[in-house]
Write a protein that binds this DNA or RNA. Structure first.
Lengths: 205, 205
DNA sequence: AAAAAATCAGGGGTTTCCCCTTGTATGATT
DNA sequence: AATCATACAAGGGGAAACCCCTGATTTTTT
């Protein structure tokens, strides 16, 4: 098991390395940007590459894409600070093996490595909470929504209020609010204020 | 030489620890927030404390201030992601011993520790450069805001409500609301609902 | 000493969001 | 023909969040 680690922050890089080694794996090499990471992967084809998403130049996602395109067999684990659904969705398309949030990484990295080693995939548990509603119907949660509902959620991502949406679509504000409720139920979102806006910002586009 | 390290990101914490140990120093303890850091400092009075600036609750700066006020003899080294003049100035007044940018920390931490051990102060070389380039940078709307205000707008971009922000910063909700009003006035934003969130989403980062 | 920043309080007004319910139309299922 | 499911529309009610204002104290900065 050879592992490559890439992260542009020296401290985080060292931390990751340190954790990985403490689990008993061998770290083949490390680097601090996407280009180097790609080169090293091509050169040594490590079993696993742990990549930070936010890197200058080629980011973790770009590298993943190129690794897939080149049909390299290195398995990719991505590390990210924020839970951004858009990125996760893309990452899934590119065939990543692991996806972990840095905040909780400590508790998950070891398990993730175990699973990936076996050939399985592992996604941060903290991410899946938000994905429960997202997963069952393939990659697109929006597909469950009707046309009107989709129009409305589109406008919500533009930070329009129900009132503004109502005006734009020549509807009663109440109608828009009704649609909102339906959307929330369909997606199984928690009962918070502004859930829809928060969800929309992270999931649409 | 006993050293305490505080950082809310597990990876960075581990990385820092790992580096420090590799230089031959002993890490007394670590923690992930300012309150714990302060308690541990009071309890064990380590020789040196390496603190991250961005932490929930008490941040590194707050801890530094309190350490100075309590006339504790622990020497503080601050780690920061962003090079903010305001913070650096304050830090200097609170009598910090070291100030390092995370990006370049690797190359500077060891030297910094050496100097601080001798009783000298050490400031990141990369900071002075950026201080110059930061000065004429008054076009930024954020530069008009005070430190507290910036903290708050940062949390607004993360879609926190005033209540949540108040909890995170240990403030009254009223204080947060007051800051919001001030920010809105300083930026000359229109009188709409949620103006701040909308503005923040589009203008910060 | 004066100005600015930070903290908090009380109270008020408005908006927005969300829930629950009702109603209609349509089209598919039984 | 009757039932069922679904989309769509709209209303009432309530809680939460936001914004505003005045005023006050304390700390920090200048």
């Amino acid at each position: 098991m050879n592992i490559l680690i890439a992260d542009d922050h020296p401290f985080t890089l060292q931390g990751t390395k340190s954790f990985v080694e403490s689990y008993g794996y061998k770290v083949l090499d490390t680097c601090s940007n996407g280009v180097s990471a790609l080169n090293l992967i091509k050169l040594h084809s490590p079993d696993i590459a742990i990549l930070d998403i936010n890197m200058p130049g080629l980011d973790g996602l770009d590298v993943t894409k190129k690794v897939q395109e080149s049909k390299l067999k290195t398995k990719i684990i991505l590390l990210t600070m924020h839970k951004e659904m858009t990125i996760y969705k893309k990452a899934k398309e590119y065939g990543i093996y692991g996806f972990i949030l840095k905040e909780h990484a400590q508790s998950e990295l070891e398990k993730c490595l175990q699973e990936v080693k076996k050939g399985n995939r592992y996604v941060s548990l903290f991410l899946e909470e938000d994905l429960i509603s997202d997963n069952p119907n393939e990659n697109n949660a929006l597909s469950k929504l009707t046309l009107s509902e989709r129009k409305i959620i589109e406008l919500i991502t533009q930070q329009k209020t129900s009132k503004q949406i109502a005006e734009l679509l020549f509807l009663s504000e109440k109608t828009v609010e009704g649609h909102r409720s339906n959307i929330i139920e369909k997606l199984g979102l928690p009962k918070e204020k502004n859930v829809l806006l928060k969800w929309a910002i992270q999931n649409v586009h």
